[in-house]
Design a protein around this nucleic acid. Sequence first.
DNA 1: CATGAATGAGAGTTCATTCAT
DNA 2: AATGAATGAACTCTCATTCAT
Lengths: 202, 202, 202, 202
Amino acid sequence: MSAAPERRHELLATAAEVFAAQGYDATTVRKIADAAGILAGSLYYHFDSKESMLDEILSGFLNELWGRYDAVLAAGHGPTETIEALVTESFREIDRHRAAVAIYQKESRQLREQPRFGYLDDSQQRFERAWLRTLERGVAAGVFRADLDIRLTYRFVRDTVWVAASWYRPGGQHSPEEIARQYLSMVLEGVALRARHDPVTQ
Amino acid sequence: MSAAPERRHELLATAAEVFAAQGYDATTVRKIADAAGILAGSLYYHFDSKESMLDEILSGFLNELWGRYDAVLAAGHGPTETIEALVTESFREIDRHRAAVAIYQKESRQLREQPRFGYLDDSQQRFERAWLRTLERGVAAGVFRADLDIRLTYRFVRDTVWVAASWYRPGGQHSPEEIARQYLSMVLEGVALRARHDPVTQ
Amino acid sequence: MSAAPERRHELLATAAEVFAAQGYDATTVRKIADAAGILAGSLYYHFDSKESMLDEILSGFLNELWGRYDAVLAAGHGPTETIEALVTESFREIDRHRAAVAIYQKESRQLREQPRFGYLDDSQQRFERAWLRTLERGVAAGVFRADLDIRLTYRFVRDTVWVAASWYRPGGQHSPEEIARQYLSMVLEGVALRARHDPVTQ
Amino acid sequence: MSAAPERRHELLATAAEVFAAQGYDATTVRKIADAAGILAGSLYYHFDSKESMLDEILSGFLNELWGRYDAVLAAGHGPTETIEALVTESFREIDRHRAAVAIYQKESRQLREQPRFGYLDDSQQRFERAWLRTLERGVAAGVFRADLDIRLTYRFVRDTVWVAASWYRPGGQHSPEEIARQYLSMVLEGVALRARHDPVTQ
DNA sequence: CATGAATGAGAGTTCATTCAT
DNA sequence: AATGAATGAACTCTCATTCAT
C-alpha cells in the first residue's frame, strides 16, 4: 500500500496538476491515472482513496508553508518587515507549489467542514492571528494606518496575495520576488500617485 | 418550458444559494429540489437542465452588472472617479447577488472553456479592457503611479474586489458602500501610514 | 372523462400518426399533445392512459378489418377469389388506416403478451385459420401448388401484404386496388416469365 | 474501453438477444446486464453506451452480409442465379444472426434518421441498386416478367425475405437453404398451379 | 376542456473503489 | 506494480400520470 516514495511523489504531483486544472470534484481518478499513464485501479496500490491524495497534497503544502512562516515570525522583525517577508514567502510558495495553492484556494472552504480536513481551519486561524497581530503592532507603532477596519485590511491583504495563484504561471516574466515587491508596494503605498500629497519630500 | 416567471425566479434564487454554498459540481439537483421543497424531477418542468439553471444565474448577473458598468463608463468621469464608481457598483452587486457572484468567482475559470459559457470570456475581456483603459488614463493624467506593471495592477484591483464575495454576508455590519470606501482607500492610498506626507512629523 | 366523440377521434388520429412515425415507446404523450396543440395533461381528460389510446386505435382497426374479412369469408367464393378478395381488402385497409396498420405491424408481437392486448392473438389466430383453410381448399381443388409447405406459404403471403404498410403512402401513384392486383399477380403467378414453361415457344 | 474481444462478443450477443425480443427502446440496460449476469454499470466498462451496443450489432451484421453479397455480385452470374444466391445468402444470414436481423428489421426505419446510423441508409441504397439492376437484367434477358412495376417487385422480394427473421427460429425443421428454396420457388413461379396455364406441357 | 405544477418511478450513465490474477 | 473486470451507490434526466384551478 505504501511503496517507493518517489513514485508516490510523482503521482501526487500529477494528481495536483489535474486537481488544479479541473477542480477536485470534476477530476476523476481515471483522469489522474491517464495523466500518469496507468489504469485507475492501479492508483489504489499507492493511495487509499482520491481523498487521501488530496489530503496529502494539501497537508504537504501547509507543512512546508508553515515552516517558512514560523521562521519569519520567530525572527523578531518589525511589522513592515514581517509583512514583507510573509508576502514574499507566500509568492515563493505559489511559485514552488502552484497546483497545491490553487487547490487550496478553490476547495478549502468546502473541505474545512469535514473532520478530516479540520487542519485547514486550524491553519487558517493561525494565519489570521499572525496577520492580525502584525497589523496591530504596525498600527501601534504608527507605521500602518489606524483608520481602517483591521479585519477588512487583513482580508484585503490575504486575498490579494493568494488569488494570485489562480493566474500565476511559474517561469513567466516576473519572478516571485518581483511580484511580491510590486504587490507590497501597491498594498502598502497604494496605487495613487503620492507626489501630489507631498511634493516637498520627493 | 418557460412558465410563470416568479416561480422560476424563486427556484433560481434557491439554486444559486446552494451552488454558492456547495459548489456547482457538488450540488445535486436533489439538494436544490429539497431546498425548494419539491422533488428533483419537478425542477425539469421549469428548467431544461442543471446547467441551464447555472447559465441563467450567471448570465442574469452579468447582464445586470454590465447595465451598471456601462452607465458608469458612459458618464465621462475622470479615472479616479471611474474606478471609485466601478468598485462601488461591484460591491453593490455583491450585496444584491452574493450567490451569483460567488458562483462566478469559483466556477467561471472552468466554465469558460465550454462554448455555452463563452460569454464569460467575452465579459471578462470587456472588463479587462475597461479597467486597463481607465488605469492608463490615470497614469497619463498623473493621478496613478507609473512605476507599476499595469496588468499586475489590474489583477490586483480586480481580485481584491471580487474575492470579497466569498466572505461578504449581506446585512453585516458594513454596507456595501462602506466596504467600497475602505477598499478604495486601501487600493488608492495604501495600508502604510502616510506619515512622511506630513513634513512636520518627519 | 369521455366527452364529444369527434374530439376523441381527432386526437386518436393524431396519436396514431405519431405512434406510427416514431414507435409507441418512443412516443411521449407530450409529443401527441404537441401535435394536437394542447398540453400533455389535457389528454387525460379524454383518455385514461397512453396505453388506452393505443388499445383504441388497434381494436378499432381490427374491428373494421374483420367486418370486411367476415363478409368475404361468408360469401362462399372459391379459393382463388377468396384470396384475391382478402388481399384487396387488406390493401384497402392499409389505404384507409395506414397508421394503425403500421403500428400493428411493429408493435403487435410485443403487445400480444399483455393480457389487455390478448385480442391481438385471437385475431392473429382467426386470421391464420382463415388463410390456411383457404390455401388447403385451393390445394385440394388443384388450383394451388401442393409441393409447398403450407405454413411457409401462409407466412409468405401474410408478410408480403402487411409489410406494405411500412412503405405505402396514401395518394401515391398506385391505388390500393392496383397494388393488390400486382401483388396478387406476383404471389399467384410468380416473378419469372412463364414463357419458358411452354415448350412450344422455346 | 475496448478490452478482451471475447467478452465484448458474449455481451453483444446477449444484448442482441434482448433487443430482438423486447425492442430496443423497451430494453433497459439493466435487463441486458441481468441476462449477462452482471450489474448494469459494469456494461459501461465494455461499451460507451446502450446505443453503441446497438451500433456494433448492426454494423457487424451489415459488414458480414455485404461480404457475402459482394462475392455474389462479383461472380458474374445471370439474373436468376444472382437472385437465387442473394436470397440464399440472406436466409443464411438470418440463420447465423437472427437477432441482429430482427433488430435491423424493426428499428432501422427510425434509426436511419440519426447521423450515427446513416450507414443503414447507405446500405439500404446499395441493396436497392443491386436488386433493381438484377431485376432489370432479368427483364431484359426475358427471364423475368416485364409487366410488373419493378419497384413493387423489388419491395415484394425484399420484404418477403427479411420479414422471415421475425418468425424464423434457428434449429427448426427447415434449414435456411430449404427455406430459401421454397421462398424462391414461390417468388419466381408463384403459388398458383402452373398446370392450368399450360395444359399441353403436363 | 384545458392549464400549470407537481409527483414518483425508473431510465441511462458515471465513478470511486475492490480484488483476483 | 499494475491490469481487467466488476461492484454499487449516486447522479441527471425523462415521462406517464394526477389534480387543483
